[in-house]
Simulated scan of single mutants.
Amino acid sequence: MAKPSQNNPGIHVSAPYNPSDRMNPDAWAPLPLADYACHCGQTGTATGTTEVKALVSEYLTHQSSHEDR
């Protein structure tokens, strides 16, 4: 998937599955990542569960601000 940009707006979230909690408790668990871009030029990037959740909320709020235009 192409990274979101002003010419390719949208949001991309990557939350890798990590079965290590059962199979290998010592394995490193990758962090979720997210980035977005709006056609107006606003962008955002986040790493980690809490930050990604906040970024998704920010993106949805920002997108709703364009609905009236």
Results as ranks from 00 to 15, higher is better:
residue 18 N to D: 09
residue 19 P to M: 01
residue 11 I to D: 01
residue 14 S to I: 12
residue 26 D to E: 13
residue 51 E to M: 11
residue 49 T to S: 13
residue 23 M to H: 08
residue 57 S to V: 11
residue 38 C to E: 01
residue 9 P to T: 05
residue 66 H to E: 11
residue 34 A to W: 00
residue 40 C to T: 09
residue 66 H to T: 09
residue 1 M to S: 13
residue 21 D to Q: 06
residue 67 E to V: 12
residue 49 T to Y: 13
residue 65 S to Y: 06
residue 23 M to R: 12
residue 64 S to K: 14
residue 32 P to L: 04
residue 40 C to W: 12
residue 58 E to P: 00
residue 17 Y to N: 09
residue 5 S to P: 00
residue 13 V to M: 03
residue 22 R to Q: 08
residue 16 P to C: 04
residue 29 A to Y: 04
residue 2 A to F: 08
residue 60 L to F: 05
residue 16 P to I: 00
residue 49 T to C: 06
residue 21 D to H: 02
residue 39 H to P: 00
residue 38 C to N: 11
residue 62 H to A: 04
residue 9 P to I: 00
residue 46 A to Y: 08
residue 8 N to C: 02
residue 27 A to F: 04
residue 31 L to M: 07
residue 5 S to T: 15
residue 68 D to F: 10
residue 33 L to I: 10
residue 44 G to K: 03
residue 8 N to Q: 11
residue 1 M to A: 13
residue 10 G to M: 08
residue 63 Q to G: 03
residue 35 D to S: 05
residue 55 L to P: 02
residue 26 D to Q: 11
residue 55 L to Y: 03
residue 9 P to R: 05
residue 12 H to P: 00
residue 41 G to D: 11
residue 15 A to L: 13
residue 5 S to Y: 01
residue 55 L to I: 08
residue 13 V to Y: 07
residue 68 D to K: 15
residue 66 H to N: 10
residue 7 N to F: 05
residue 3 K to C: 04
residue 20 S to C: 05
residue 69 R to F: 07
residue 34 A to E: 01
residue 48 G to F: 08
residue 53 K to F: 06
residue 51 E to P: 03
residue 65 S to Q: 12
residue 60 L to M: 12
residue 19 P to W: 05
residue 48 G to S: 08
residue 28 W to M: 14
residue 18 N to M: 05
residue 47 T to N: 15
residue 16 P to K: 04
